[in-house]
Write a protein that binds this DNA or RNA. Sequence first.
DNA 1: CCAATTTAGATGCATTTGCATCTACCGCAG
DNA 2: CTGCGGTAGATGCAAATGCATCTAAATTGG
Lengths: 160, 160
Amino acid sequence: MAGKSAESPVRLAAETWESLFRAQVAVMRKLQSGPAFRKLAVNEYDVLFTLSRCPSGWLRLNELNDNVLLSQSSLSRLVERLEKRGLIARMPAPEDGRGVLLKLTDEGRELQKEIGREHVRDISELMGPALTQAEQKELMRLTTKLRSSLGPRPPRQDPR
Amino acid sequence: MAGKSAESPVRLAAETWESLFRAQVAVMRKLQSGPAFRKLAVNEYDVLFTLSRCPSGWLRLNELNDNVLLSQSSLSRLVERLEKRGLIARMPAPEDGRGVLLKLTDEGRELQKEIGREHVRDISELMGPALTQAEQKELMRLTTKLRSSLGPRPPRQDPR
DNA sequence: CCAATTTAGATGCATTTGCATCTACCGCAG
DNA sequence: CTGCGGTAGATGCAAATGCATCTAAATTGG
């Protein structure tokens, strides 16, 4: 009953998550200590990156919050700092008086590209030797599937 | 040359990492907002968990630091807090006068188990519906491979 | 054996984070 | 229109974090 290989589904899930989590920690540790993030913390870069990927150029603060592992208040202040540094611009949302829209400034876009180039190079130097391209594709497929299986569900409370 | 599907190896690596990272964020966000972490932050639980897995029962502070995405000083203080709460015990390392050894107290072990049970259940509720067991195994294999490919390298400088 | 370098961990201090709360606005029921 | 919840962000404040630095112990080179 306590055999190591008698993997219950619950145990398998837990071990899979732990492995994913540790890999993320290990990679992130290397990335964030590299020279690419001298000017900007990883979370800050992540905001610029997400904005750079946004087709319309403008993004709501609360949408941004889904991508980042930060509380709403922390993100609010992080954005405030980025604005003070001239990297992003805010404007009140036109359709929703409560909301805020964000976009990159030219300077922000420039910095994102600059850091992004280095960052991408660092990533590829870590992933390239570790996994074959086929393995990378499979890893991407699995993590995308995992994410999309949770993502569409906005944290629904028990509706009682 | 700039076609969307003409994935260069560099780009593939970057997209794979992003997918892994976002999946981790999405899962972590759900986990840490759950009731399992009312009494303890995720980082704090992680320390207890790591100690609980340690065969000898004792672990060096610096070894612990490899598992966690925290600076050395933050971990030092986190451990200090856990000690104050009576969850772990410290002792000077017998072989190395600079070092510190840590282990769970009975109370710490109890709390780890309690949270761990809930935590594992939460994980399995997230992963179970998202990926088949075969997919979970593959995901575990890939992330383990990724980690082990970076892990063994204690940041050794070129000794020249 | 001793001086110089390196490593483990702790600490002062400024920055960042999260929780709780607050304000303003939306949407809806009457 | 008005009042009532619910959502988007901002803010006060205490706690956590990271950087730089410090101390002590181990290691290395002579």
